[in-house]
Design a protein around this nucleic acid. Structure first.
Ligand code: FES
Ligand code: FES
Lengths: 145, 145
DNA sequence: CAAATAAAAGATAAAAAAGTCTTTTAATTT
DNA sequence: AAATTAAAAGACTTTTTTATCTTTTATTTG
């Protein structure tokens, strides 16, 4: 089990892919995105529809349609994607699944876990969607295999 | 979605519970463990059977039977439980679900994520099963609600 | 405006995770 | 040895996650 759900992994990879593919304008179709991040196309379609409804990615129908990101979207942090897909359990939930993470009657791991949980949040909050466009274009980073 | 599966959350809480309940000898039955960590009893039974087969907890049948931990078990790190239940994806897997986490063609989050992943591993490796017995007896830490 | 294109929406399907129930096996006590 | 106790094992159900397929809607282009 990873930190994110499979849906969320696809979502982040797809958004990174769309970001770097449309950095200089244009749109990218679902087929190309699915191939680019090695994900099942119909499943990814569902995910992107959801992200589109929530305003995290932009989309256009018809010829030359596809997905893209506006300037604002590129500046959004990854937390926006994660919260949209997986909710905020990762940032606020108890490591051991207690109904309520609290300082008052904490689980044994609370003290140490909240630090790490905070670092995950910090990483996702400071990392903006457009951050890796250059690395992706240069092929330094990968989104599949 | 949390860091651990629900099964793993129950497993860790149950082992902590058994550890502190049997710290001065004796055994504790599945009913009491389930009540003590607020988990569905038959599901927990499955989990403990599995941990018992893998030697992480000890068990005895018959009257006065139940689960307990020997001295060695108390010194084992939490990683043993997590690996037994969830495998090692959390410690070695890619944050974005790439088939292979590697330095050669890493995903965009690799550099930062591997640090956090390492901290999680460090926390679970340095935390021994018997570590919180005292806190649990004193009621400073909780395993339910 | 007709044809073509591409995403949106909706209805299913398959697989995995979580949870339940029943029967069996092993140990203890009388 | 018989009765009792408690975990082990196995079969089964439900829920959630992951994935697929079909139809509809919107947009563009000729
Ligand atoms: S109570 Fe468990 S992490 Fe806070
Ligand atoms: S490649 Fe993604 S975390 Fe290492």
């Amino acid at each position: 089990m990873g930190v994110f759900s499979k849906t969320c992994e696809y979502a982040i990879r797809a958004v990174f892919f769309i970001a770097h593919k449309t950095a200089s304008g244009g749109r990218v179709g679902i087929k190309e995105v699915a191939a680019g991040i090695d994900s099942p196309e119909p499943f990814l379609a569902k995910i992107l529809q959801d992200l589109s409804r929530k305003g995290i990615v932009q989309s256009a129908k018809g010829p030359n349609g596809g997905f893209y990101l506006d300037a604002d979207a590129l500046k959004r942090p990854l937390t926006d994607i994660v919260e949209a897909v997986d909710g905020n359990a990762l940032f606020t939930g108890c490591a051991l699944g207690l109904k309520q993470c609290s300082e008052v009657k904490p689980c044994p791991l609370h003290g140490q876990f909240k630090i790490i949980r905070g670092e995950i949040h910090e990483l996702l909050e400071t990392t903006k969607i457009g951050k890796f466009n250059q690395e992706l274009i240069l092929g330094i980073n990968a989104l599949k295999k």
